[in-house]
Simulated scan of single mutants.
Amino acid sequence: MRNFMPKLPASRARLLAVGLMVALTASGCTQMKGRQGYVVDPVLTQAITPGVDNRESVEKTLGRPTFVGQFSNNEYYYVSRETRQLAFANPRPIAQQVLRVRFDPAGNVAAVDKTGLELVSKLNPEGDKTPTLGRHRSFFEDIFGNIGAVGAPGAGAPPGQ
C-alpha cells in the first residue's frame, strides 16, 4: 500500500506543530465580554426630569424597570452591568450603572439618582470559616460554657419547681 501524504521536511513540521500549539493556547485565553440588564441610552436617561415626568412617562421612555423597590413601589431601578471574563475565570464587572427613579405619592418623579461601579463590593470567603461578630470562645469554653447555666436562678425555671 502506498502512502499518498507528501513528506514535510523536519523543520517545516516543527514550525507547523508550534503554530498549532500557539493557536490552541491563544484560543483558550480569550476575553469574553458580557452585558446584563438594562441597555443604557444616555439621551433617554437624561430626559427623565423631576416634577415633569410621571410613572407612565418613565415607563414609556425607559421601559419596564429591572426591579421595583422592595419596601414600596415608589422606586424604579434600572440596572446595567458590563463584565469581562478571561478564559475559565469568574466574570468581573468593568462597568455598572444603577438608575433609581423615585416617585412621590401622586406618581410624579421626585428624584433621579445614578450610581456606578463604586458601590460594587467584592466578597472574599476566608477558607472554610465564616467571620462573625461577637465573642471569640476557645475550644474548652465551647464545650464547658453552659455548665452551671442550666437550672440557675433566672435561667428559665421558676424557683421551687
Rank of each mutant, 00 (worst) to 15 (best):
M1L: 10
N3S: 08
N3K: 05
F4P: 11
F4E: 11
P6M: 01
L8S: 04
L8Q: 04
P9M: 00
P9K: 02
A10F: 10
L15F: 02
G19M: 08
M21Y: 05
V22C: 08
A23R: 01
T25S: 14
A26V: 14
A26I: 11
S27I: 06
C29P: 01
C29F: 15
C29G: 07
C29I: 13
T30D: 07
M32Q: 15
K33N: 10
G34R: 09
R35N: 09
Q36V: 14
V43Y: 00
T45D: 05
I48L: 08
G51C: 12
D53W: 08
R55H: 00
S57N: 06
V58W: 07
K60D: 10
R64M: 10
V68D: 00
G69L: 11
G69S: 10
Q70C: 04
Q70W: 11
N73W: 03
N73F: 06
N74V: 00
N74S: 08
N74L: 14
E75N: 12
Y77P: 09
V79Y: 11
V79D: 13
S80G: 15
S80A: 15
S80N: 13
R81M: 15
A87P: 13
R92H: 12
L99S: 07
L99T: 14
R100F: 05
V101P: 07
D104H: 09
N108Y: 11
A111T: 13
V112A: 12
K114Y: 13
T115Q: 13
E118F: 08
L119I: 13
L123H: 11
L123Y: 15
E126C: 01
G127A: 07
T130A: 05
P131Y: 04
T132A: 10
T132H: 03
L133K: 05
G134Q: 03
H136S: 10
H136D: 07
R137V: 08
E141M: 02
I143E: 06
I143S: 04
G145K: 05
G151L: 02
A152S: 08
A157D: 06
G160H: 02
Q161K: 07
